[in-house]
Design a protein around this nucleic acid. Structure first.
Lengths: 335, 335
DNA sequence: TACCGTTATTTTAACGTTAAAATAACCTTA
DNA sequence: TAAGGTTATTTTAACGTTAAAATAACGGTA
């Protein structure tokens, strides 16, 4: 049941080289106190045994891990994929010595809390980027107290550093696109509600509501649980025929799902209904018709998050970095 | 520079509860040796201090981590996303107490080696699923010796457990689709060559070659470095006009990129050229025209890999589990 | 009341590393 | 040649946990 444990340790190398384990430790990190002669012996012994340091033991005493942790709701989201592209490229270019590990919350809040606590308590990483829903204030406070760099993709989170793309502006772009196109019975697709508003990106819904009402139209709201292709596709069946424009604030993937659902249902886009997505994922340009969408500079945002982590890591007194990116509207066939 | 370290430990809880640290340890894991009375005191003390166990220290002595590690080339690949969906769902349903972490190799072989060694040596996980390129034989041997369950997505790897989808059959389905449609100047898009064949999934290329030659046509081969949308798109420009059929063995994402490239170039699919992809990703049904593709049951494969890990974990003498899945051809607009 | 067998708890020793303190070895210099 | 100062290496003590061994406390029996 329990795994085998027979990898060579510092002590094994030490015994073979005829020195103490501390000498091996120092020799391996090229400490100037060790003579070239003994270092040679140590290196040879380490090589012949195939010694690899145990990072767990190391982390316990050093309190540094050489690891950047990502916490995301799911490993398989396309939205996160583009952020990850930026994060990975920044790490590869600027911090190649760091390991990148990703934790999945499975979208469950309790699990998310558990993961953050575990990372903090077990010091599993030197810095954390959170792609998932922002954790509870108590977790954020814990990060603050631990002085561990913590960056999340959300706006104006008290006590944390963040990177965000202006949702109000994005919603404005999307709503105008629909209203200008003459929609008089528009709807919005959002994540499911909590406390009277969508549980993620409520600002998009707020702006859409306001602008519609300002223009004298009363908009529909359609909530979905999972923000993916198939839930978009099945939602399409539940949208009344009189709706003539949809702002899919839940993201491009859902919008692409809607597109597929509408096609099955015989609703023509953009003739019968205009559709605007959100995110600007690559694939949104490939569907038929092309999806008009509010594009976020996801790769740049990912890179920025990494940069924040490392500036916080090098001088941790400067807390609370943040940056708001601007979205743009990509007009395509669906409007 | 170094992080703060002030989370409460077993000793802190012990002091507050007026018992020894071992008692706390036992009480927290509900050991029957501890009286309900002292357990109560301990639990109360632990709660009031907000005690969370340090998994690093725990892992050092227990040699069990409650973690399943995934090693992938990149966090952002769509192919892996569907595998991950299966892996995540299996974990969530059958092993919810396990943490799931993912390591990224960035596609570099040296990094991959380093990551595997680190996982093994530092016992970072109880089992490992490798979505990336199979590692070197020496790493595979190390996994074998460590008796740590190790499952990879590749075929017939000596000494490892694996899950694979029959590439020969898949290539056969794709090639026949092109030849039956009357292509007499077909080509294949593969990953870049190493030792005279594509460095990943060489079997697809081999079968395609053979079947084409058997039918009396000499096929083209187009290699690409990165297996993603944009490299597919830019490859399109380099494909000669006389080519009338492409088997994109490099995957749907590349095929979708090709589609976009062909559209820009004014090549009509399927009139001027027929295109068959590989993988059967969701998005391949949404592009215009719909992509004919060889579908792998990726989610099922992911689930199977998880199941292998846990059967190996419970009785580690039975080594070398494997399963070959069958692909199917999804015929759509591109042929 | 002295002895034994339970049961409840504590003490001690690991796990594999790093950091600090201690020692040993070797040169200078007086 | 004894004292002092480097330099090279070793000893010791952490880090926070679990597991094994040791002890303490208690109740029952002879």
């Amino acid at each position: 049941m329990t795994g085998a444990r027979f990898d060579p340790t510092l002590h094994d190398v030490a015994r073979l080289a005829g020195v103490s384990h501390t000498t091996v430790s120092l020799a391996l990190k090229n400490d100037s106190r060790i003579t070239p002669n003994t270092r040679g012996k140590v290196l040879e012994a380490a090589r012949s045994l195939g010694y690899v340091p145990n990072e767990t033991a190391r982390g316990l005493v050093r309190y540094r891990t050489g690891t950047l942790a990502l916490v995301s709701d799911s490993f398989s989201s396309a939205y996160e994929a583009e952020l990850l592209r930026g994060i990975e490229s920044a790490m590869r270019h600027n911090h190649p010595e760091f390991a990148l590990v990703q934790y999945s919350t499975g979208g469950r809040e309790a699990r998310s809390e558990e993961i953050h606590r575990r990372i903090l308590r077990s010091n599993a990483a030197d810095a954390v980027i959170c792609l998932a829903e922002p954790p509870s204030p108590s977790v954020i406070l814990a990060y603050q107290q631990s002085q561990k760099p913590f960056v999340l993709f959300a706006e104006n989170v008290e006590g944390a550093s963040w990177v965000h793309c202006d949702g109000k502006l994005g919603a404005q772009l999307a709503t105008h696109a629909l209203l200008e196109a003459g929609c008089y019975n528009p709807g919005i697709v959002t994540s499911s509600f909590q406390n009277g508003q969508p549980h993620c990106d409520p600002e998009r819904w707020g702006v859409f509501q306001k602008l519609c009402l300002d223009s004298g139209v009363v908009p529909h709201t359609f909530e979905i649980e999972l923000l993916d292709f198939s839930s978009g596709k099945s939602l399409a069946a539940r949208i009344p025929r009189e709706v003539d424009g949809i702002f899919c604030a839940a993201g491009d993937l859902v919008a692409i799902g809607l597109l597929a659902g509408f096609r099955e249902k015989g609703i023509q886009v953009p003739q019968d209904l205009k559709l605007v997505g959100y995110d600007g994922l690559d694939v949104s340009s490939l569907v038929s018709p092309g999806l008009t969408t509010v594009a976020q500079p996801l790769e740049d945002m990912g890179r920025q998050a990494v940069q924040f982590c490392f500036s916080l890591l090098s001088n941790f007194e400067s807390s609370g970095l943040s940056r708001l990116f601007e979205p743009i509207l990509l007009r395509r066939g669906s409007t």
